[in-house]
Amino acid sequence: MSERVLSQRALADLAAVPARSRWVTSGQIRLHALDYGGDGVPLIVLPGITSPAIAMDFVARELTGPVRPVVLDVRGRGLSDDGPSYTLDDYAADTEAVITQLGLDGAVLLGHSMGARIAGLTAAKGRVALRGTVLVDPPMSGPGRGPYPTTLAAFQDQLRQARRGTDADEVARSWPRWPRREQELRARWLASCGDEAVAATHRGFESEDFFDFWPSVPAPTVLVYGADSPVVTAEGAREAARANVAARLVKVPDAGHMVFWDNPQVALEAVRDVLRDMV
């Protein structure tokens, strides 16, 4: 099992989150999610490769109302268990378990980066009833394609930094544009991400091809991407539009891959517009 650390200060962050913890099982894996409640359409939020559920709190808060956000700690991150494996099929099965066990049929899936891939595959499999999907800057790397822009070594360095102890100032050197609270949460929660969870997912970015399932993602589906993203390039966006003609593409200006963190106001307004159409 990989070394994962959660400090008391990190756990205390949960007290300030307007959501309650929910627990489901997927096989032998116990999964944790933050449920923001309300009477809106369920919105399953699936974070990125090194983002536990609390990292998406600022997104969930801004969307609550017409939707009921439920943010998943993806296996190997946050309060969820480690898994024996970390394939896209595993992650899709976990998402199906959340929907089924929490009674969230007719949900919208909203995923960022790794989470966008999970949302797309879950929808393409068609095993649960969904209202639609929003894929935010999904990695388009895969066999025969260019590598994922952030190397595994870079992610491993970030994990080591988090486990020896870091703070918002140090995080800001890598992510200077992020809101201060998000830098602080990154500093306290990154150590909850497991080494193998990150390594296996990174391998999957280059062995599991997004375009194998993207053409089968049913409408309504929207692909949101950063105008300056190295993950969804201009050519990648054009290929995505050709491969799934029913999809709508939305470009967020002045944003890279970390779309919500780079340009929060514009990115959130774009997603609110998309969700208004879906719900």
Rank of each mutant, 00 (worst) to 15 (best):
G37L: 13
T50N: 13
V232F: 03
A227E: 15
A16W: 08
G27P: 10
L14H: 14
A187R: 05
W23C: 07
A123K: 01
L121W: 00
G40E: 10
G38E: 12
A270K: 09
P52Y: 10
G37S: 15
S141Y: 03
R68T: 05
Q265F: 03
L72W: 01
P84N: 13
Y225C: 07
P220M: 05
G115C: 09
R117M: 03
R61V: 10
S174G: 15
M278E: 08
D89C: 03
L110A: 03
D39T: 14
R30V: 04
G226K: 04
H32C: 13
V24W: 06
D195K: 00
V5H: 12
K125L: 15
R77I: 02
G83A: 15
L34D: 03
V217F: 03
A227H: 09
G146D: 13
A55D: 14
D39F: 01
H257Q: 12
G226Q: 08
F205W: 04
L43V: 06
A172T: 12
R127F: 08
F205N: 00
R181Y: 10
L152W: 07
T221D: 06
L185M: 13
M56V: 03
T133C: 06
F211N: 10
A162R: 00
A92N: 08
R242N: 11
E96T: 02
S26I: 05
H32W: 13
A55I: 10
P52T: 13
I44M: 08
L63S: 11
D35Q: 11
S207N: 10
E182I: 08
R22I: 06
R22N: 02
R181Q: 14
V279K: 00
D90T: 14
V271F: 08
S174N: 15
A237W: 08
A129C: 07
G236P: 03
I49M: 11
E182S: 06
A153K: 13
G40T: 09
D89M: 06
I29N: 08
A92C: 07
T233V: 12
R164M: 09
A199P: 05
